[in-house]
Design a protein around this nucleic acid. Structure first.
Lengths: 343, 343
DNA sequence: GCAAAATCTTTACACGGGTAAATAATTAAT
DNA sequence: ATTAATTATTTACCCGTGTAAAGATTTTGC
C-alpha cells in the first residue's frame, strides 16, 4: 500500500533506490533491466503506488504503445464484434487499443484518423467504408502511420488487407440453397455503403452462371445504416407484389435479412426450410442476432478471430520492423455455412 | 495549405507573429483573446497547419478536456445507444469523450476507471453494473474525479444519478397489459446483473397489488450477458411445461423477451395481441431490435436523450464549479409505452 | 581471480507547452 | 487628447519524462 504519495519518477527513484534513467527503461520495457533490479523496482511499486505520467511519457517518445482501431459503425453488432476482437488481440500484445466508431459517416472516418494522428499511434487498424471512404485521406494517413485494413479494402492504397472471401462464401451458400430447395434470388441495397456488397453480388452472378441457372437480383432503394428498416419496407413491397420468381431469397447481409423476415411476418408468410413454408430467407455475416430471429437465420459465419489475429499480427510486424508494408497484400478467410431453419 | 512544417508552438509563434503565451491562451479557449488577434491566428492556422501537441498540453494542465464514458457492455445495443448519445452530448460541449466498455465484467469496470485516471479526465460518466460494481473502487474514484452515474445507481456513493423511473414504466405497461388482455406474469433472471431488474420486479409486485391481482414471478437461472440465450432456453422449458398461469408474459428487459419470442416460435406458439394468438410477450427498454422481431415487441422506451443531456449538463456544471457534488441526487425520467403487436 | 561485458548511476540537456510577472501596446472611456 | 482598462509581449521558470554520454559498479566467462 502507498505510504505517502509519489509525485514523479524522481521521487520514486529516491524511495526505491533506483536511478531515474533505469526506471525510465523499466517502464518502457520491464525486461530491459536486470532481474535483480526489476524485482527491486516491483517491490517498491507495491509499497508506493506510482505510475508514470502518460502524457509526459508520450511527449518525447517517437512511437507510443497506442493502437488505433476505427470501424464504420459500432452500433452495428457486426463491427462491434470485429472491434472487440481486434481490441483483445491488441491488449494481448501489450498495446493500448483506442476504439473509434465513424458512426456511419465517412467524413467522420477522416476525422477519426485525424484525431488518432494527434495520439501518435504505433499503428492503426481500419475497417473502412470502402468506396465511400475518403481515399486520399486514408492514403495520406498510411504514409505516416503503419496501417492495416480489415473487412473492406480500398483499392490503390498500399496496405495489407484481411477479410472474408465473399466469393467463396456466397458460392457456398448458393450451392447449399440450390441443393436444398429452389434457386435463390439475391436481395441487396441499390447503393451499398460497403464494398463487400459488390463482391457478393458478383459472386452470386458467378455462382448462378456456373450452375447454368438464371440470376435474379433485386435492389432496395435507401440510404444510411438502417438496413433492417430498408429490408423490411422494400421487402414488404416486393413480397406483396410477388416480384420474386422463386421462393428463396439470399440477402446480401443479415441485417437486410432480418428486415425481410419482419416483412414476411407482416404479410403472414411462413418462412422456413420445411414443408408448408412459403419462403426461404438466408443472410450473410452471422449477426449476433440471427440465432434468435423467428425462424433462426441460415447464414454465413465470418471467421472474425482469424481475421483479427492475422491483421494484428501483420500490423505489429510492420511496427517492429519499422518498414511500411506497401505491398497491398490481400488475405482472405473462408466463411462457414450456418444452417438454421430459415432456409 | 502548409508551407513548411511547424514543429511546435514556438515556431508557429514566429511565423504567425503572435507570442507563444497568447497562442497558448488561444488554444485553451479561442474566445479568450481579442477578436483581431483571433483572426490573425486563424489565418495563420489556415496557412501553416499546426496543432498543439496533445501530450505536452495535457501534461501540466490541471484538468484536460477529456470526458470518460464507461458502460457495462458496448455489445449490448442498449448501452451502445446510451454511450453514443452521451458521447454526442460531450462533443457538443467541446469536450473529448473517451468511450470504454467493461465487456460485461465488473473488474474491467474498475480497470477502466483506473485507465481513465491516467488520462486526468475532467469528469466521468459511468453506467455501472450496480451491485456487481466494485463499490469502493467507484467511491474512491468519485473522490478524485467528478462523476455522474447513469442508468444504474450505486447506493451509498455521493454522486448524481440519472435514469429511468422503473416504477412508473412498469406500472404503465402492467396497466396496459391488464386492460388489453389477461394479467401479466413477470419473467426475469434469477441473479440479474443490473439493479434495475430488482426495481422492476418490485414495481411489478407493487402494481399487481394495487390492482388486487395475483403476482406470478418466474426466474431464469443463468449467468453472463447472453440474455437472449437464457431467455430462450429457460423460456422454452417454462413454456413447454406450461408453468405460466396466464397467457401474458412481461419480461424484465427486451433481450429476455427476444429470447422468449424465439422460444415461443420454436414451440409453434403464436405470439401476439390479436385473437387466435396463444401468448402475449412484452419487454422493457425498446431495444433497437425490438421493432424487427416477429412479432414486433411491445415494450417501454427509455428517454435516452433526456437522460444523456441532463447527466452531461450536471457533470459539466460540477466540473466548472470545481465542486464535488456529493448530494447523491437522483433524477428519474418517465418511460413511454410502445405498443406493437406482440402484446 | 581477472578481464570483458553488461548494467547501473550521474549529469545534463531536450521535449512542447502552461503560466506568472513585469512591461509594452492597444482599445475604450471620459 | 488624455487617462484608465484591456490585452499582448517578453522573460523566465515549471511540468514529468526521454535519452545520450561518461564513469562506476556488478555480473559473466574463462
Amino acid at each position: 500500500m502507498s505510504r505517502g504519495k509519489i509525485r514523479n519518477m524522481e521521487e520514486f527513484a529516491k524511495v526505491s533506490g533506483i536511478s531515474r534513467p533505469t526506471l525510465s527503461k523499466f517502464f518502457h520495457d520491464s525486461e530491459s533491466v536486470r532481474k535483480s533490479t526489476r524485482e527491486r523496482i516491483e517491490k517498491a511499486l507495491d509499497e508506493y503506488d506510482y505510475r508514470p505520467n502518460v502524457y509526459a511519457m508520450n511527449q518525447n517518445r517517437r512511437t507510443t504503445r497506442n493502437i488505433g482501431i476505427v470501424v464504420p459503425n459500432l452500433a452495428d453488432p457486426f463491427f462491434n464484434e470485429i472491434g472487440r476482437t481486434v481490441e483483445l488481440a491488441c491488449i494481448k500484445e501489450g498495446y493500448s487499443p483506442i476504439l473509434l466508431s465513424s458512426h456511419g459517416n465517412p467524413s467522420q472516418e477522416s476525422d477519426n484518423l485525424d484525431s488518432l494522428r494527434a495520439l501518435k499511434p504505433a499503428g492503426v487498424l481500419l475497417a473502412p467504408f470502402g468506396r465511400a471512404s475518403n481515399k486520399s485521406d486514408v492514403a495520406k494517413f498510411a504514409k505516416d502511420v503503419p496501417l492495416v485494413l480489415i473487412d473492406a479494402k480500398i483499392d490503390g492504397i498500399g496496405t495489407p488487407y484481411f477479410g472474408t472471401d465473399n466469393n467463396q462464401s456466397i458460392r457456398l451458400i448458393v450451392e447449399y440453397l440450390c441443393r436444398s430447395g429452389s434457386t435463390p434470388c439475391f436481395f441487396e441495397m441499390k447503393t451499398p455503403s460497403n464494398p463487400n456488397a459488390n463482391k457478393r453480388r458478383a459472386a452470386y452472378l458467378n455462382s448462378m452462371e456456373r450452375h447454368g441457372l438464371p440470376a435474379h437480383i433485386f435492389q432496395a432503394e435507401g440510404d444510411g445504416w438502417d438496413f433492417e428498416d430498408i429490408g423490411r419496407s422494400r421487402g414488404h413491397e416486393m413480397l406483396a407484389e410477388q416480384v420474386f420468381p422463386t421462393n428463396t431469397i439470399l440477402c446480401s447481409n443479415d441485417r437486410l435479412a432480418i428486415g425481410m423476415l419482419s416483412a414476411a411476418y407482416g404479410l403472414g408468410l411462413r418462412v422456413g426450410h420445411g414443408s408448408g413454408c412459403d419462403l426461404r430467407i438466408a443472410g450473410h455475416d452471422d449477426h449476433p442476432f440471427s440465432r434468435f430471429t423467428c425462424p433462426p437465420l441460415t447464414t454465413i459465419a465470418q471467421d472474425y478471430s482469424a481475421i483479427a489475429q492475422q491483421a494484428v499480427k501483420t500490423l505489429f510486424h510492420a511496427i517492429e520492423s519499422e518498414k511500411r508494408d506497401t505491398s497491398q497484400s490481400e488475405t482472405l478467410f473462408e466463411g462457414k455455412l450456418v444452417m438454421r431453419s430459415s432456409a
